[in-house]
Amino acid sequence: MANKTLKEIIKDGLWANNPALVQVLGLCPLLAVTGTVVNGIGLGLATLLVLVGSNLSVSLIRNFVSDSVRLPAFVMIIASFVTCAELLMQAYTYQLYEILGIFIPLIVTNCAILGRADGFASRNPVLLSVLDGFMMGAGFLAVLIVLGGIRELIGQGTLFSNMDLIFGAGASTWKIQVFDDYANVLFMILPPGAFVGLGFLIALKNGIDGQIRKRQAARDTQPVTTGSKRVRVTGNVS
């Protein structure tokens, strides 16, 4: 994982190694709370905060912690940042904190966070570790928002309902009633609907990746005209 470029770190977090769509980590809170967009944003921001903070701290102490206590130290760091996120939510977004409930403390057990701390932050300098934590958190947040939007739209016929729980009273007008007199689809509101939604997102990503690989293969084998002859190139075309 060492010696990654900034571009590779950004691409990994947002797409190529997305914690939810590729690593398939943190599924318990992801599937449980993404009934609406606002729930996804709340959990995603809390997870992003913990990822950035834990990666920063682990990178700072990486040369001072022995292998025998490495993992317990990392877990303690992660638990400390989860506590900070929990207290911030209690202070500023208490109603949303009540809705998310036990899934905020359960961020401690999110394998994506411990995996980034042990697999990347413990082997890389501070700036790269912070960027990695931010991009992994942003990728996870994006999936939460999209999945929450799909479930809210199909399940309730609305988008961006209860956004005032995060952004204040002014955000109460952000709600979009997409379908009038909509008969709620209970299946999508409940956790089983999250499995269907997440499966759709993973399939969509895999389909896009497959199309990208096909186009790249076609470019690598495209014929190149040299003089009056056509030469088939099987390598990269410069």
Rank of each mutant, 00 (worst) to 15 (best):
A32F: 12
V58E: 02
G227Y: 01
G193K: 03
V52C: 02
A79W: 01
L56W: 15
K214S: 15
T47R: 01
K7G: 07
V38H: 01
G42F: 07
V65D: 10
R62G: 11
F140E: 12
A73F: 15
F74T: 04
A112P: 06
A171T: 03
G197I: 05
F103H: 04
V33H: 01
I212W: 02
G170Y: 02
C111M: 08
L49A: 12
L159P: 04
G227D: 09
T225A: 10
L43T: 08
L165R: 00
S66Q: 11
G193V: 08
V69N: 15
N55R: 00
F81I: 09
F81K: 03
R151L: 06
P29D: 02
R219N: 14
P191H: 03
V196D: 09
M89G: 14
A218I: 10
R232S: 14
C84K: 05
Q177R: 15
I202R: 05
A112I: 05
G101F: 10
A169V: 12
P192V: 07
V237I: 14
D220H: 10
V126K: 05
L128V: 03
G193R: 02
I41F: 06
G148R: 10
G133N: 07
G13P: 03
G168L: 05
G42D: 05
D132S: 08
M1W: 07
G133V: 08
L141C: 06
N18T: 01
F179A: 10
T234D: 06
W15P: 00
P19N: 06
A117T: 00
S228P: 08
L31H: 03
G101A: 11
T83Q: 09
V24Q: 15
D181G: 13
W174Q: 07
V237E: 10
N236E: 11
I202D: 06
M76Y: 05
A91M: 05
L49P: 00
E98S: 14
I99V: 12
D67I: 13
V185W: 07
N3Y: 08
F187Y: 12
S129M: 09
N236I: 02
I113D: 13
G26T: 01
F200C: 07
P125I: 03
F187C: 10
V69F: 14
L204G: 02
P19Y: 09
S57V: 13
E98T: 08
F81G: 11
N110K: 00
G170I: 13
G207M: 14
F187E: 02
G227F: 14
D12Q: 12
W174S: 15
L144W: 04
P29E: 05
V33S: 04
D209W: 09
A16L: 13
G35V: 08
K11D: 12
I78G: 03
N18A: 05
V196R: 07
T47M: 11
L159F: 12
A46E: 04
D164H: 06
G197H: 10
R215A: 14
F81V: 04
I78D: 06
V24A: 13
A142D: 04
R215Q: 13
